[in-house]
Write a protein that binds this DNA or RNA. Sequence first.
RNA 1: GGGCCCGUAGCUCAGUCGGUAGAGCAUUUGACUUUUAAUCAAAGGGUCAUGGGUUCGAAUCCCGUCGGGCUCACCA
Length: 490
Amino acid sequence: MSTETNIHYESRLAKLKTLQEKGYNPYPYKFEPNAFAADLQEKYKDLETGADTEDRVTIAGRAMAVRNSGMFIDLKDKSGKIQVFCHKNHLPEADLELLKCLDVGDIVGVSGYIRRTPRGELSVAAEKFDIIAKSLQPLPEKFHGLTDVEARYRQRYVDFIMNDDSKEIYKKRCQITSAIRRYFEEHGFLEVETPMLHPIMGGANAKPFITHHNALDMDLYLRIAPELYLKRLIVGGFDKVFEIGRNFRNEGIDKSHNPEFTALEAYQAYADYNTMADLIPDLLAYVAKSVLGTTVVNYNGHEIDLGKPFARKSIVDLVKEYAGIDLMQAQTVEEAQAMAKSAGVDASGCTSWGKVVQEVFDQKVEHNLIDPILVMDMPKDVSPLAKTHRSNPRLVEHFDAYVGGMEMGCAYSELSNPLEQRQRFEAQAAAREAGDEEAQMFDADFVTALENGFPPSGGMGMGIDRLAIFLTGAETIRDVIAFPTLRKKD
RNA sequence: GGGCCCGUAGCUCAGUCGGUAGAGCAUUUGACUUUUAAUCAAAGGGUCAUGGGUUCGAAUCCCGUCGGGCUCACCA
């Protein structure tokens, strides 16, 4: 961990003072480059070794390496890297003096002409050199870089400076969000914002963060999902809406879970989950194509083509296929648990038929779902906000989308009957009463909203961080979040 | 939260059986000057995460605490 008292800091501070004593400001207001490293590398890729040009450019970036006492500087800007060549023959005396105060990590601005050195390195031969941000902290060693996992996340800016992979993954993640926005806007959806402070938590089963509003003297939950508010907008006549935003869940942290994560939810009136079953694969293919340039994704050694139609199978059929038991034959929890046991799954903790189905699915099926698939028709009791299945009252019209063995998103035919919604909430409240901390709370105003007339609608949700993991091949959710949650250091 | 493992210089890492704290890069000084992890010479840099214990003596052994990793549970 860097401190303010190490020898590097002292040395850099002394150089900063030297600069200031000379009347030089190493923290100017503005500097305008007119070229970027990657563009220059491309434009001059055929320039012969040893050749000079008359072409003059101004570039700016971080000095990543300094050789021969400043004669050669590797400059890195947002686009890439280019060498700066500082020779006394082309540089004013004052600028040569500046080089004595240059450290690796400083941000510099350089004007000069393009040449390719005899060793074949495209360079800007400096005719004007400036330090435009003096860095007081040493950069990690150039060869190994910053590899300490903790340091990488605690000082993510250093990680991004040193590790191009980290930067590339985060950049792609941002492009994914952008592509999702574009997709929905192109399809007539309105991007909306709904509260993150909820008086009643709803829309998902999860443990919440609780905070307090002083003036109202009221506890509030950081939202676990925006669903119930987005549906209120559908009632209000916004027929196609989507929201991209943070959800907060007070649960464990691991490779695929961060306490705050970004979710997409979209709702479309006069549609059902079949509409969403068409939309989700289309969306995923669009995003992959936008960000990766192809629908074919290599993930964990598997080649997955998001451009092909997604399989659709019911969860009960999948359980039958992978666990060899037909849970539709079980009428009670006990029968279902017995069947689960015969398939080697301990479902003794499950309090309902649906939870047994879910448990067997989690243990026997989920990890096998590498190719994209929509797992259709969930048990009713695990999904209190979806419409009862039109052909089976034990199920709801709810599917989960799996890609690469990860649950990527879900969709429902949204429950629109206020009376049924009230009953489902009552069942959840009873489960909550019985000790199920994650059962949903009764939201009376939401029921009132439905009583005002909620059109038949399809809705979907997707975890953007997980999608980013899948599309970038990131090893952990921390790599697709700029500043992942960490324990306080002190 | 449970189990296992880790924490030594700014960074990347050695440190044997418990016996004076090490290297490379980085820094400083000097040399060199069309280098590519530039090179050469020299110097400086440490509360060995932290607090206790055992011991003549602890980076090393034991216990607590803090932080991290893996994993299980919970979960998207």
